[in-house]
Design a binder for these strands. Structure first.
Lengths: 212, 212
DNA sequence: CCGTTACGCTACGACTCGTAGCGAAAGCTT
DNA sequence: AAGCTTTCGCTACGAGTCGTAGCGTAACGG
């Protein structure tokens, strides 16, 4: 968040209700208009605030949409299924459910595209969206190592690289499936993906050990 | 392409030189301005043509950028390294090299974002960019099956699903690494990725069988 | 009650968009 | 060589958006 009133501050405080109304209006506008046709004037009207209020709180369209989309990822939780495969499937299904929403599709990819030319924007995305997801990978990996499903820790630098690699594979696959292939990442797909991730391509032909 | 002069047509033909100049100017504008600040008027000036000529050939910014970016993928070739791992690494490195270019980063993701609200645009992307990449997966997989590195074909519908899955994993990982994590998909990363893809997470700690 | 800050509203110049209309140019056909 | 057809470059235009400035009012804290 960025609109927190600095602690020992005088004067009229910023309306917290306006913040939530603006972010909700932004998501609604993303659904109806998409990124390119979304205008800040329209968002202001939807939220019931003045256009100038928007410009007082956000630098521009990019920052506003990042904050609006970031809230969608608040609900991400790491399930405790007891097995690595179960944890992966659970997280991926949650991630896929978020990405299936139209405001996430059009908003997230657009700001990522913009972030290729804006270092500050990329950092904002990283801090408010990506880092939260990556923490799930770290925790899930640690659990699996504790159960002996994954080889134990090596050097810490090597571990960081591995986490980054896993994260790029998991998040990238779901994003590509949802946005580029434009097919749902449903349970069947997630099962297949998880099997490839855990056992590799060669093992992908075999059935998993436990049919229901 | 869309500006081919219909076969038995009379009148002045469209300038092919204008086409290439416009697409090159579009890529240059993508590098300098990025997607959001790119204007068709600016592209026309760079290409040395009138703005109206642009509107006669392309419906809008989206279609123009898709064509401009699609040309970047013309150079994709499937290397014949003799092993599945080598083929995967070769293709991924080529793909990564293309995605490393700024005109690909800002252009490709932006049109993908737009395509979530435009069915025709998504089809245009699929036909001119995605399908070409997917063919490499199909061919590489067939070669590996011929060498016995992958289990042979099952049902054809099952095979299509597998190809789609592999494609989403490979392309998604490279895209996510390059655009979201904003780190280069260099040889070291590609080696690690290929190993996970072929042997799975559990085998990712082991060294590959054949050191040079 | 007073100082300070946020808010809503209006207005503004600058810019981009996509289109229309025109005369000239470049092909093919006869 | 003349005629037909289509494209091209150019200019101009209304419509819409941008981001900001200015003003009076509202909501807090001391």
């Amino acid at each position: 968040m960025q609109s927190r009133t600095p602690a020992g501050r005088t004067g009229r405080p910023r309306s917290a209700a306006a913040d939530t109304a603006i972010l909700a209006a932004t998501r609604a506008a993303l659904v109806e208009l998409g990124w390119s046709k979304l205008t800040l004037g329209d968002v202001a009207t939807r939220a019931g605030v003045a256009k100038t209020t928007l410009y007082r709180r956000w630098a521009g369209k990019n920052e506003l949409v990042v904050d609006a989309v970031a809230e969608l990822f608040d609900e991400l939780r790491l399930p405790d299924s007891g097995t690595l495969a179960g944890d992966v499937e659970g997280v991926v299904l949650q991630f896929a459910a978020i990405l299936a929403r139209p405001e996430a599709k059009s908003g997230l990819m657009a700001v990522v595209a913009e972030s290729t030319r804006d270092e500050a924007l990329r950092e904002r995305i990283r801090a408010s969206i990506v880092e939260r997801q990556k923490r799930l990978v770290v925790e899930g990996r640690a659990r699996a190592q504790g159960r002996g499903e994954l080889p134990p820790e090596t050097a810490s630098e090597e571990a960081a690289r591995t986490v980054d690699l896993i994260f790029d594979i998991v998040a990238g696959a779901v994003v590509h499936r949802t946005l580029v292939s434009a097919e749902p990442a449903d349970e069947e797909w997630v099962r297949g993906f998880t099997q490839v991730l855990l056992t590799g391509l060669a093992g992908a032909g075999e059935e998993p050990a436990s049919p229901p």
